[in-house]
Write a protein that binds this DNA or RNA. Structure first.
Lengths: 335, 335
DNA sequence: CTGTTAGCGCCTTCAG
DNA sequence: CTGAAGGCGCTAACAG
């Protein structure tokens, strides 16, 4: 495993097979004309010697890596791992591998990606970090040959895009409307911190006020898109405002955290408190009471992102986007 | 983004700064002696020109990629995504990136990894695919400079290892004992198909028979380690053998599938049926009734795997392993 | 159909 | 402290 065995190169194979390096290269890449006889002889020599092409050398000369970079904020969030699965499957079909960067929402890590995954390291880039600042994202996209961004609006020339057909703040608004219609008058809202895919809390309140659904700013809060933060924020919100009869979570993990917090505080769901999430991760349908949420075709989000990336990588300079639908799935937590 | 702009090379910087390429290289790598003045001048030129070193070129000459390959069977399984998170965090700290391969338990994909992630593509490899056949795994490990295997026994010279302190079949046995002690006499077992981390069903039955816990072969089944398979297998098992009062799932996803199937069939849990899982994913504690399962320090499994890999990559040829504990967490599904 | 020449961008070795 | 020559392993472009 660590012995200093000489690497077998193209030249070794060529010498052994009595041909030139070029011929071996042609055989490996199935390019150019090579007689059936030599082709076979070279093939045999390759397996006999156990030759394997050197990736970096090939990358250097072809200027192609067969790698695509994928940036996510949290691979342990089922929403993102499903997206990665979709990307990876499509990439694999085309002979590409995935270089994964999990930022953990850490700005230092986000910044470091600029040097870690640069243009020479990957052939294309998929970013699904809706909380990454423009100061980092735009230069990042600019420095790559091809890029796709998920759930974020960026200048069309910088990247293709996969996003919800409905605009910013759609979920929160629909949720609030749905709850109001069901008779709720004191609705809380937990916004996802720094998310570029959501409206601000102010915009949320303003829009609903226009529809005579009054939401008070003190009923709203922001937190990171993870379960623990949802739990804590839910607890705080319900302690400070026991009058709330419903809470909208920014995503499923947060909503589930809220549900658990409410249950731990002795609240019954949905009788004492209705909860709505977003993303429709597996857990949402499995938990009791099951979580009302917005279904997102998560796998398709990933696979389409990969497809749009390949389109760009193949030289299509036109802007392409894939819009997906989000549909409210009524379950037990907010019937 | 797609303009044919000339790549800026080391030589460009050298010319601009009025030094040789070698000096620029020294500045970049902080190696060798360079006067403070030239160093600064070169640095300035680098930022002025926006120079970035070409990864493949550097890889070719140094024979290092700063990449580690990570092979998992299913990134959407929270168990694996948590492991990947652990690996990725440690890798990042050392300036390494993760090349992810998600096999989806697909043998064709597993085989393709041999050529896709070869020795020249990564500096080290972490495999946590307990269902990959030895015919593929061993050559794979053999062809890499450094490797770590998770939850699988392999010849010590091939890789370092992270695994449960308890041997094969520990979970299933403990679960059965626990259930028997609680008075269950007809216990079903769902084995994970092709898993090298588990005993066979026969061994499971034999060992328990020795302890006078009678398990019938027809109460046992095998399935893939995913929720859907657990649901289906649970349904079949409960239909064919309604007499079962408890079922042991190979992992949490399968156990949760069984729980849902049982609930859908009108069984109450744990009154009509007790269920035990394994892994302790987030979902296990959140669901109602909460799932009795084995806690695994999943993040540490990943981070330790990365640490053991770096140890090997740094030339430590001794065999190292990290053993973790699995502890039964009693929850509501099997109190 | 096959070989020759050149060079990708960088770093190692050895002189100065 | 700095530079010149050479080569990592492979392929593009051109001969023959």
């Amino acid at each position: 495993m660590d012995q200093q065995r000489q690497r077998i190169t193209l030249v070794d194979v060529a010498r052994e097979a009595g041909v030139s390096a070029m011929t071996v290269s042609r055989v490996i890449n199935n390019t150019g004309r090579v007689s059936q006889a030599t082709r076979q002889r070279v093939r045999d020599t390759i397996v006999r010697l156990g030759y394997r092409p050197n990736r970096p050398a090939r990358m250097l000369v072809t200027n192609q890596t067969y790698l695509i970079g994928v940036i996510v904020p949290d691979i342990t969030n089922p929403y993102f791992s499903k997206i990665v699965q979709g990307i990876e499957n499509i990439a694999w079909e085309s002979g590409y591998s995935v270089l994964l960067a999990n930022t953990n929402e850490n700005p230092a890590r986000e910044e470091a990606i600029l040097s870690q995954i640069d243009e020479s390291a990957v052939d294309g880039l998929i970013v699904c970090s809706s909380r990454m600042s423009d100061d980092i994202l735009l230069p990042l996209l600019e420095s790559h040959r091809a890029a796709v961004v998920i759930n974020r609006k960026i200048p069309h020339h910088l990247a293709n895009c996969v996003r919800s057909r409905h605009g910013l703040g759609y979920r929160a608004n629909q949720s609030a409307r749905f709850l109001a219609q069901a008779g709720h008058e004191r609705i809380g809202y937990i916004h996802l911190k720094r998310s570029a895919a959501m409206d601000s809390i102010d915009a949320f309140i303003a829009r609903l006020a226009a529809d005579h659904i009054p939401i008070k700013p003190e009923w709203c809060a922001s937190c990171l898109p993870i379960w623990e933060a949802g739990y804590q924020t839910g607890q705080q919100l319900l302690t400070a405002h026991p009058e709330l009869t419903a809470i909208i979570g920014g995503n499923d993990l947060v909503a589930l955290g809220v549900m658990r917090a409410a249950l731990d505080m002795g609240r019954r769901i949905p009788d004492d408190l209705a909860v709505i999430g977003g993303d429709d991760i597996l857990l949402a349908s499995q938990i009791t009471p099951s979580l009302t949420t917005f279904h997102v075709p998560t796998y398709e989000v990933g696979s389409m992102a990969a497809r749009l990336l390949f389109q760009k990588m193949q030289g299509d300079t036109s802007y392409q986007e894939y819009l997906y639908d989000e549909t409210l799935i009524q379950r037990d937590s907010a019937p």
